[in-house]
Nucleic acid binder design. Structure first.
Lengths: 334, 334
DNA sequence: GTGAAAGCGCTAACAG
DNA sequence: CTGTTAGCGCTTTCAC
């Protein structure tokens, strides 16, 4: 049996209104009635229905988070950060994993709107026009996290071009000249940030007068396995290769693993630097040097921005978070 | 602007009731009005409020999931499985991470109850009496996932004793005699399953006439770092150690990592077998042999059970899922 | 086939 | 200080 405000009211010999008042600390009642009401609430184990409240208040204290998957460490770190600030601010989060699937994403958007979420965070997805239209139309305060967009929606991202440039430059400064890159494919998530990373790589090369050849880059997916196959392609394609920059750490770790199986020593034979600095980096063998994009920070920032939008009801300004290379043991000085 | 059923009704020159009927495919209207209503809905981009619906229907199509953290692979795999079946069955999931914190857990339980979730899954937490009391009192259909409990709540788990026995026996059959175990501490999550795992380890040893000494087991936490420190303790405590069984894969991977730093070769110098068979196992170096507890399957099973409880309104029977050892390259035959 | 009206549990004026 | 009343957006009898 779950009680209603009416049950409490009757039992305390007051009106619903009074119960509501003490429930919300609004004042306008005597200490005595307050005590009585609280007592009855305790006694009954009464908890107000957030559903009913939501109906009147137009505020559900629930936010939605759309992620492409649930198993990548990156997403996991995002979720962690978001959930933390949401909880601190008294909201719950509904997670939806879209599998980077357009139709599924639209369905989730509708679903979340039907549930009347207060706000939305889109993480690591490509932001399509239809999403923008929908969000715009129903007016959900939204912020994009690590998601590139051509549409005017606030976002928090890293400067991908710059980060890739930094990673590549780091390799160069360590004396490497034959450097390859393993990138994700064109359609995948984090999409849009793909180009900048590649450009950053190329720019660092050219700024340091290192010749670039298209076959220094190999395209695949964003997973461990792609790192493995990427490595194989790369060593075949570029003779004398000494270092690899991978678009993310998952790929980098895949490279580490494949290298082990192929009898290639890291960093002795080949150096690798990843990107994202996920938790795993420090636990793989050898620990993976990576460019840190401080994801938890990004996620928290995004969440805070979203709540600000909810409160103030106006758009906030996007921000780009800094990065740094975290040196571990997968890069050797030549 | 977000429209209500009334807007649709007016615009279609029918009553709310009729709109509601076509919305729910209830029949009792002409083809013509149906068409008209649908047309207006389309036109307005109307989406019914799940909040209002929830209020009348006493069904929110939202479930809650309580997990101890958000970053362990195990939890991630659970979430993944749960979200998948929930979505297939038309429900959303609110995730809450309790940090194995009793107070926080109770707060979340209350919060979720206030949100009037249809059902609840508790994953990888120790199930305390106060949780049981609360759940019982407010009557949320609940199932425990990989959580030990003395209370009559349906659960899906692995047979921890058996799995630990299997892992240990595997090591023995590979010719190992000096076997250590790294276990989590007493109070942590997955708690309750800790004892069975230790007992399984001991039983396998004694069944194969291998002497057991208390210092063959070292206790710590459940993370990478604990594996590292565990290894150091173990090699000091038991001379001639050739193999280690770790209570979970995270610990096992920590051992791998620490071994690398200490110049200990796996599996040449020392063999290690983990438990859980998380995704990471196959990507670390060397790939970690592990006892598979098929978590996604467990999660899906748990979710299905929960929905069954919601539908049928009666408790379902618990189940214990099988396991198997997944051979990779971290164990050597002596 | 369709509409009117009551009610889900709560909050927010508006009166006293 | 406290109660009455009118919604919030939807579903569901019960009539017509």
């Amino acid at each position: 049996m779950t009680y209603t405000i009416m049950d409490v009211a009757k039992r305390a010999n007051v009106s619903k209104a009074t119960v509501s008042r003490v429930l919300n600390d609004q004042g306008g009642y005597s200490e005595k009635t307050k005590r009585k009401v609280l007592e009855v609430i305790q006694e009954l184990g009464y908890h107000p229905s957030a559903i009913a409240r939501g109906l009147t208040n137009k505020r559900t204290h629930t936010i939605g988070v759309l992620v492409p998957n649930l198993t990548s460490s990156l997403v996991t770190e995002f979720l962690n950060g978001i959930e933390a600030v949401a909880h601190k601010l008294g909201s719950s989060v509904i997670v939806c994993h879209t599998e980077s699937h357009g139709i599924k994403t639209m369905m989730y958007l509708q679903l979340l709107h039907e549930k009347r979420i207060d706000g939305l965070i889109l993480a690591g997805t490509i932001f399509r026009e239809e999403y923008y239209d929908y969000i715009q139309r129903v007016g959900i305060p939204t912020v994009l996290l690590s998601t590139y967009s051509e549409y005017p929606v606030p976002h928090v991202t890293a400067d991908d071009h710059d980060a890739a440039y930094t990673a590549t430059k780091y390799l160069i400064q360590k004396g490497h000249k034959k450097i390859g890159m393993i990138s994700g494919n064109k359609e995948e998530w984090i999409a849009g940030s793909r180009l900048p990373r590649i450009e950053g790589f190329k720019d660092a090369l050219s700024d340091h007068k290192i010749a670039f050849n298209e076959n220094h880059i190999v395209y695949g997916g964003f997973s461990f396995d792609d790192g493995a196959t990427g490595l194989k392609h790369l060593i075949r394609q570029v003779p004398g290769l000494t270092a690899i920059f991978t678009e993310n750490d998952e790929i980098g770790i895949g490279v580490l693993s494949a290298a082990y199986h192929l009898g290639i020593k890291v960093p002795k034979d080949i150096s690798v630097i990843g990107m994202d600095n996920i938790n795993l980096c420090k636990v793989v063998t050898p620990p993976l040097t990576s460019v840190s994009l401080s994801h938890s920070e990004m996620a928290e920032k995004a969440a805070n921005m979203m709540f600000e939008m909810i409160e103030s009801n106006k758009v906030v300004t996007s921000c780009i978070l800094p990065h740094e290379v975290v040196e571990r043991q997968s890069v050797r000085t030549l």
